[in-house]
């Protein structure tokens, strides 16, 4: 199990290098700067933790969660970048997705602050997995909002962005499930958790490598109609729907 875990970690490091090199060769680093910064940070921290693990376990334990939160914070930036690119021509949708993300993260930090302030026995250092799980849930909600809005309004997404969403979603989804099971099952689940994390991250890396192999600009959208058209469209739809609703509401239950 230990050897398999090591192989997965080394493979992940290698794929990260490939993606980063491709980004420089294809000049896409600047286009998805937050994502590549995130990847570079993950690569540096993983390498550091690997060295620390080999040298001294206490150093690894000391830094693991701290570095995990740094990459977690950058991961939130990746979601903002995804939203910005996917809704490049839809200011309102981008604003809505960000609003959902801010509210979710805000709620999680508020709960965290309440715990720290009012529960003297509750120590954040003792519950890093719980905090990570909660932040992953916030990321998942933000991703779900983006996926839902693109599906609802049938917004076309380019190959690069689709890959970013899929890869990140796979990793976040697997993290939530494994962290939750680890918190509830306990120490018995730790060996499985140690495998699921690197495996899901490597799967995400493979998706990113394929999707970001070459730069593909976002699909061209048709020209935006006048604002007055939207108001008329929404107004008429609402008016007509309202009258249908009214009629159906009046239907006697016979």
């Amino acid at each position: 199990m230990e050897i398999l875990s090591q192989v997965v970690v080394y493979t992940a490091l290698l794929i990260e290098v490939v993606i980063l090199v491709r980004s420089i060769r294809c000049k896409t680093f600047a286009k998805y700067s937050i994502f590549y910064t995130y990847l570079l940070t993950v690569w540096v921290t993983s390498l550091f933790l690997l060295i620390a693990y080999t040298a001294t376990r206490s150093l690894y334990a000391l830094f693991y969660w701290r570095l995990q939160f740094v990459t977690l914070a950058l991961g939130c930036g990746v979601i903002v970048e995804i939203s910005r690119h996917v809704f490049a021509r839809h200011v309102s949708l981008d604003r809505f997705a960000r609003w959902v993300a801010i509210v979710t993260f805000g709620a999680i930090f508020l709960v965290f602050a309440i715990h720290v302030a009012f529960l003297p026995h509750w120590k954040p250092v003792a519950n890093p997995a719980e905090l990570e799980r909660n932040l992953r849930i916030a990321q998942a909600i933000a991703l779900l909002t983006i996926v839902f809005l693109t599906g609802y309004y049938r917004i076309e997404i380019g190959k690069n962005m689709k890959g970013l969403i899929l890869g990140f979603g796979v990793y976040v989804g697997a993290s939530i499930i494994s962290l939750t099971l680890r918190l509830f099952i306990g120490i018995w689940f730790s060996p499985v958790w140690k495998i699921i994390g690197p495996f899901s991250y490597t799967a995400a890396l493979l998706i990113w490598m394929v999707a970001l192999w070459s730069y593909e600009p976002a699909p061209a959208s048709p020209p935006e109609p006048m604002e007055v058209d939207y108001r008329r469209l929404a107004g008429r739809t609402r008016q007509a729907l309202g009258s249908i609703q009214e009629q159906l509401d009046r239907t006697p239950d016979r």
Partner: peptide, 17 residues
Amino acid sequence: LSLLVGLVLVVSLYFFA
């Protein structure tokens, strides 16, 4: 709830793909 969020995300991604 946590497992539900994780599963909903995975299923949504399947349909998204």
